[in-house]
C-alpha cells in the first residue's frame, strides 16, 4: 500500500516538474534568441550601412583608377557628382604586401608548426610554442614599430612595401604555426605509422602523407591568417606609408585598402569614398572567411 502512495506522489511531482520545465525552456530559448540577435546585429548593421552609403561609388573606375587628388574630389562634391577615380593603388598594394607576407609566412609557419607537432614534449619546442603565443598577443602597432626600426631604417632606407609586408608577416606567423600544429594533431597517428611501416623516410611522410592529409586544414589556417592581416592599418602607417599611384616596387612606399580608408577619413572632400572602400575590404574579409568555412564543412563530411 505504501509503495503505491509513493508512486502516486512521484507521478504528481514529475507532472508538475514537467510543466515548470516547459516554461523554463521557453524562457531560456527566448534569451538565446535575444542574445544571438545582439551578436549578429552589428554585422548586419555594418554591411547594410556600407552598402547603402557606398554602392554609388562602386563603378568600373573604382577598380581601375587610382585615388583622385583632393581638388578633383572637391570639384565633384561641389557639383553633386560622384567622386572620380578609384582605389586601384590600394588594391594592388594590399595584394602585393599580403602576397609577400604570405610567401614568407606560409613556408616558415608550416615548418615551425610541424616542428612543434613532432616535438610536443621537448623543452625547446615548448619554449617556441610559448613565444608563438606571446607573438600572437603583441599589438599590431608594435609590430609596425619593429618593422620600422629594422626594415625602414636599415634595409629599404625609407617607407616601403617590404616593410609593410614584414609587419604583416610577423602577424601571420603565429596564426599559421598554431593552425598547422592543430591540423597535424587531428591526423590519426596510425596514418603516419603506416608510412613508416613501409620504410618511407621522414621527409616523404611529411610531404606525401601528412601535408596532403591535412591540406584543407592548412589552407583554412592560411586563409584565416590572410583575412586577419588584410585589414590591418596601424602597422602599415609606420611602414608602407601610402601612395597615390600604383606601386609594385617593394622598396617604395605603397598604398593599401585600409590605409586609403584612413586617408579618406582625414580629407573632408573624400569622405564619400570611405564607404565604398570599406565595403570592398569587408567583402574581401568576408569572402576569405566564407571560403575557409566551406573548406572546413567539406572536410568534416
Amino acid at each position: 500500500m505504501k509503495m503505491i502512495s509513493i508512486l502516486k506522489k512521484t507521478d504528481a511531482q514529475v507532472e508538475r516538474k514537467w510543466d515548470a520545465r516547459f516554461i523554463k525552456d521557453k524562457i531560456f530559448t527566448g534569451f538565446i534568441i535575444i542574445f544571438s540577435l545582439i551578436t549578429i546585429s552589428p554585422i548586419v548593421l555594418i554591411i547594410s550601412k556600407l552598402i547603402s552609403k557606398g554602392y554609388k561609388q562602386l563603378n568600373w573606375s573604382f577598380f581601375t583608377e587610382t585615388t583622385p587628388n583632393t581638388y578633383q574630389a572637391m570639384l565633384a562634391v561641389n557639383l553633386g557628382e560622384i567622386i572620380p577615380g578609384g582605389v586601384l593603388n590600394g588594391i594592388t598594394g594590399t595584394i602585393l604586401m599580403v602576397l609577400i607576407a604570405s610567401i614568407m609566412a606560409i613556408p616558415i609557419g608550416i615548418m615551425v608548426g610541424i616542428f612543434l607537432y613532432e616535438n610536443q614534449t621537448k623543452k625547446y619546442a615548448v619554449i617556441v610554442k610559448d613565444i608563438t603565443d606571446i607573438l600572437q598577443g603583441v599589438p599590431s602597432i608594435v609590430l609596425g614599430l619593429i618593422s620600422y626600426f629594422w626594415v625602414v631604417k636599415y634595409i629599404t632606407n625609407g617607407f616601403s612595401a617590404l616593410a609593410g609586408s614584414f609587419a604583416l608577416f610577423i602577424m601571420m606567423l603565429p596564426l599559421i604555426i598554431r593552425s598547422t600544429e592543430e591540423t597535424f594533431k587531428m591526423i590519426p597517428v596510425s596514418i603516419k605509422e603506416a608510412g613508416f611501416a613501409l620504410g618511407a623516410p621522414y621527409h616523404k611522410i611529411i610531404l606525401k602523407v601528412m601535408i596532403p592529409s591535412g591540406l584543407s586544414g592548412l589552407i583554412t589556417g592560411i586563409l584565416l591568417a590572410i583575412s586577419r592581416v588584410v585589414g590591418e592599418t596601424a602597422p602599415l602607417m609606420l611602414t608602407a606609408l601610402g601612395s597615390m599611384v600604383v606601386n609594385l616596387n617593394i622598396e617604395k612606399p605603397t598604398s593599401a585598402l585600409p590605409l586609403l580608408i584612413w586617408e579618406f577619413y582625414n580629407d573632408p572632400n573624400m569622405v564619400d569614398l570611405i564607404w565604398a572602400t570599406s565595403l570592398l575590404l569587408m567583402m574581401l574579409v568576408l569572402g576569405l572567411n566564407l571560403i575557409s568555412k566551406y573548406i572546413i564543412s567539406k572536410r568534416n563530411l
Binding site: I191, E193, A197, L198, K204, V209, S213
Partner: peptide, 27 residues
C-alpha cells in the same frame, strides 16, 4: 610488412596509389 589494428589506408591516395605506396614513398 605490417598491418594495423584499425584499417589505415592513406586517406588522400586512390586505391591504386595505396597499393603501390611503398614504392612511391621510397622514391
Amino acid at each position: 610488412g605490417m598491418v594495423f589494428q584499425r584499417p589505415n589506408p592513406f586517406p588522400t591516395m586512390s586505391i591504386a596509389d595505396n597499393v603501390i605506396a611503398g614504392y612511391n614513398l621510397n622514391g
